[in-house]
Simulated assay, not measured.
Amino acid sequence: MNLSILDIRGCAMLDELPKDIYNITHLKIQREEPLELGPDSDSDVELHLFDGPPTGNIVRNIRDAKRINLNERESIKSLSYECMRKEGWDGEAMLDALQPHQNLQKLCIRHYQGLMFPSWMRSQMDTFLPNIIKIKLFSIYDSEDLPVLGQLPKLEVIVVDNMPKVRRISDEFCGQRNAAGISFPSLKRLTLTNMWELEEWVTAVVAGDGERGTSLFPCLEELCISDCPKLRVRPGIPPSVKTLDLESSVLPLLTGLDGCQMSLKHLSINDLEEWISLPESIRHLSSLETLRIEECESLATLPEWLGDLSSLGSLEIRDCPLIDYLPASIRHLTALKTLDITACSESL
């Protein structure tokens, strides 16, 4: 055998070579340099799985993933996984080998191609990531379920964007409740975006008589729902929500405001095409301070009951071309300080 150079650079899926190959005298094996993370790694790290830009931190295979010992890197506080989608590459096994340290506070996963999340995100996640504050999941096309996040004691922010196979967010999302009997004990902000097939989100335990029971999101204050055209919230928006931002979603979401009549302070509605008039449920938001309505092209009139919103301090109406007058009751809005009307009917 006269082989002197074996070039296996670019063979990301090749974990090992035949043992006999090392018996070839003077053989030089050229391979990609494995990623090295020193003991003093930056607190904010982005990893590219399988492939990535030349200057990126690329983890090419499971061997490299195990070598960097990510679960021992206690200095890393923010971690982002960018997964290269290619046929035959086992993203679940790769993320299993890239379990982060318990000190991690922020986690972002993009373009993950596994049917299931790694084992450290499926059960007892509060043991693996007890200090996590923010979790973002982007463009995860194959998984039908969200990881169980309700047990994480410090989790404050969740962003889920573009998971097209998720149809239902049930109480399984919450997992087992803590010693105080609640889930998501610290969650303050939730964003659901581009969830085209999401049909149902369960927000509370329903009692035997059909009445709303214990909220599954007791501390949630800010809720953003965008481009979720099939979504229904059952039994309704969590009563703790103070800020609600709806964009390109469906009207029934605004019929579930009964539970937050006293708490909701800021309501933003953008691009709800099927609207002709404002739903009656808004009328009873006695604590509402700001109302912004934008790009609702079918909205033709504003109701007289608008004057019942006694706490309203700011009213913004933009890009609603059919609205050509304001109701007379607007004079009863004694707390109103800001009135912004832009790109509506020329007669207004």
Score class of each variant (00 low, 15 high):
Arg9Pro: 02
Pro18Ala: 09
Ile21Ala: 06
Ile29Trp: 07
Glu32Tyr: 08
Pro39Lys: 13
Ser43Val: 05
Gly56Tyr: 08
Gly56His: 05
Leu70Gln: 04
Ser80Met: 15
Arg85Asp: 12
Glu87Ala: 13
Glu87His: 10
Gly88Val: 04
Asp90Pro: 03
Met94Asp: 03
Leu95Met: 08
Leu98Ala: 01
Cys108Phe: 09
Leu115Thr: 09
Phe117Met: 12
Phe117Gln: 04
Pro118Val: 10
Gln124Tyr: 10
Asp126Ile: 01
Thr127Phe: 12
Pro130Phe: 14
Ile132Val: 15
Ile132Asn: 02
Asp145Ser: 11
Leu149Met: 12
Gly150Cys: 07
Lys154Asp: 01
Val157Asn: 10
Glu172Trp: 05
Gly175Gln: 08
Ile182Ser: 07
Ser183His: 03
Pro185Trp: 12
Lys188Cys: 11
Asn194Lys: 07
Met195Pro: 01
Leu198Ser: 01
Glu199Gly: 14
Glu200Val: 09
Trp201Phe: 15
Thr203Pro: 02
Ala204Pro: 00
Gly210Asp: 00
Thr214Val: 12
Leu216Cys: 04
Leu216Pro: 01
Pro218Asp: 08
Ile225Trp: 04
Ser226Gln: 14
Asp227Cys: 10
Pro229Asp: 09
Lys230Gly: 03
Leu231Cys: 01
Gly236Thr: 06
Pro239Gly: 11
Ser240Gly: 03
Ser240Asn: 01
Leu244Phe: 10
Asp245Tyr: 13
Asp245Pro: 00
Asp245Glu: 09
Ser249Pro: 00
Ser249Leu: 04
Leu251Lys: 10
Leu253Pro: 00
Thr255Arg: 10
Cys260Lys: 08
Leu272Trp: 09
Glu274Tyr: 07
His284Asn: 12
Glu294Thr: 07
Glu294Ala: 05
Ser298Gly: 15
Ser298Pro: 02
Ser310Cys: 09
Ser314Asn: 14
Leu315Gly: 00
Leu322Asn: 06
Ser329Thr: 13
Arg331Phe: 12
Arg331Gln: 15
His332Gln: 12
Thr334Arg: 15
Thr338Gln: 03
Thr342Tyr: 14
Cys344Tyr: 10
Leu348Arg: 03
Leu348Gly: 02
